[in-house]
Design a protein around this nucleic acid. Sequence first.
DNA 1: GTATAATACTATACAACACATAGTATAAAA
DNA 2: TTTTATACTATGTGTTGTATAGTATTATAC
Lengths: 105, 105
Amino acid sequence: MEAQLKRGSLEVCVLASLLKEDSYGYKIIQSLQNVVEISESTLYPILRRLEAGDCLKSYSVEHNGRLRKFYSITEKGKDRIKEYLQDFQELMNIFNYIAKEVKDD
Amino acid sequence: MEAQLKRGSLEVCVLASLLKEDSYGYKIIQSLQNVVEISESTLYPILRRLEAGDCLKSYSVEHNGRLRKFYSITEKGKDRIKEYLQDFQELMNIFNYIAKEVKDD
DNA sequence: GTATAATACTATACAACACATAGTATAAAA
DNA sequence: TTTTATACTATGTGTTGTATAGTATTATAC
């Protein structure tokens, strides 16, 4: 899958993965494996950006002597998901147009 | 609509608009108005990129003393559209996952 | 008992692309 | 005669997915 097409969706995908329960970097990657392949170099910057934008809050929990950083979604994060779902309808318009032109050709 | 979400789709949208007949910048913007709002500053770079990538060919036609640049889609351009339609299925997976998580929450 | 894999991050840098802004220039319409 | 429509080019910016590299611990396999 072309990288450009994922733009805007990956962040929201990460947000959505935190709706049911808080999680941390490594586990998020695992839990999304069936949905989309997301590497560490993609995920961690996303987590930091989302936290900087108040869509996520984080707290650290000690685990085997090391700190594990957990993230939880905020109300703003939930709003962000809703906006995405609406925006995607517009993207579907574009997709439908392209599919139609191909079919008619 | 958030700009990032359009990434990768606009180019293909322009390609698809040229399937039925050749066209030129200004007219492409008009013909896509019902599908997606695309400005000059977005379209013209796209046309140049697509031509540089051999997805489009161009030729100039004199019109009212000025040259009007027409674009026609190439086989490579058509292949590009097909790839997009496939990639979009993967994007739908992401969307469906997000919608599901929201619903279950 | 040592090498490998899994866990769990941070930091730096790059490339693609949507879009803003500005500039150029002609023709038609008000 | 001023505005609107037509029809482009050029330059620069911000976002974001991803590559690469580095750090450090624990568990598993040979």
